[in-house]
Design a protein around this nucleic acid. Structure first.
Lengths: 185, 185
DNA sequence: CGTCGAATTGATGTCATTCAACTACAGTGG
DNA sequence: CCACTGTAGTTGAATGACATCAATTCGACG
């Protein structure tokens, strides 16, 4: 996160790091999300359920990513989303207190945090743009371009969920691409 | 924006307010977005073009809303999006300097701004969730529930664009709803 | 091995798109 | 004031993209 070591030492006491097992839940809809999770190792995923019970994946988070329901953390409202681990993982729990400490110790932190927020928004806008305008195939190609690592580490049906299509459709899309001599790696 | 009058007076000089005509462009892809637009009157719209030249509407902004390509403002990068006015409008131009002044004069401003960012993210997440999981009909119903005013003031084909469907499809959806005795107003 | 979930494949269905025709209406110029 | 034009909206028929359902196959793991 670009935080220097001296600052880290000062606030160290308030940092909690935990290990989580594959498939372990870190957040459930209805609960208030108390932490922002910084992924030290492994993969987390943030998803919601629609009324048909289908999972819609909003975000994958691999090493050095932040995952959380920012709304729930920030507004202290019950979350509508779920977070779980797709691999055994190590995550750092960043709570309100931590954020405040950090802001006190390194004044530039607030700006960095703001920057992260802006980046997040940029991301979301791009994704909406794609969902509005692009075919499933194009969205898939965009995905593997942006997240080649994720693509190799999560099951295919989850990628389908992220893209907003069924696993069957994604399978067919991949078959198509193979025919066209497309090789992502 | 919840800024008190005294603060307003202090920073007044750096506030620029302009009138724009219907259809006037405020931002073009390729340009750097220098301002965040606060809509005092009228409606603005933020949209992108896909490679087929189709407009994808990311946001409508009516009275008291903020519209901008936050990324472009913040990172000072050329924007990928367009902003124009759907009605004759009056908008306040908020630039970097303004934001800084405000942060200096009212220390709580930074927090308010952060809150706006979080709200924005909440919004975008919800929209993605809908785009991933919900039918066109459900998305339309959601839309008129969230933005009844917008729905009355912008042409139907733009709403279709916002929802990610064609104008024809939206027309049919409305016909369906009418048959089911659905009356939004 | 045998089991279970993931992935593929085929047959069929559904929703939304596309293309085209037509209506309604607002704005423009004669 | 009326004809002319262009844009929005509606409707129909045909097409296409993706979903659904069902049947295998594949592959990891006990």
């Amino acid at each position: 996160m670009g935080v220097d070591e001296a600052a880290y030492q000062q606030i160290h006491p308030s940092i909690k790091s935990i290990s989580v097992n594959k498939n372990q839940q870190l957040l459930q809809a209805g609960d208030i999300c108390k932490y922002t999770f910084f992924v030290e190792k492994g993969i987390l995923r943030l998803f919601g359920l629609d009324e048909a019970g289908k999972e819609n994946i909003l975000q994958f988070g691999t090493e050095n990513w932040l995952v959380s329901d920012r709304d729930s953390v920030y507004f202290k409202e019950p979350s509508n989303y779920y977070i779980d681990a797709l691999e055994d993982a190590v995550v750092v729990l960043l709570d309100e207190e931590f954020i405040e400490s950090l802001a006190r110790v390194t004044p530039s932190f607030r700006k960095k945090n703001e920057k992260l927020l802006h980046n997040h928004i940029r991301h979301l806008n791009k994704r909406i743009h794609l969902l509005l305008g692009a075919s499933a195939k194009k969205r898939y190609l965009e995905f593997i371009k942006m997240y080649p690592d994720v693509m190799l580490r999560v099951p295919q049906w989850m990628i389908a969920s992220y893209l907003g299509i069924t696993p069957e459709s994604l399978s067919r899309i991949r078959k198509d691409l193979a025919k066209e001599n497309f090789a992502p790696y």
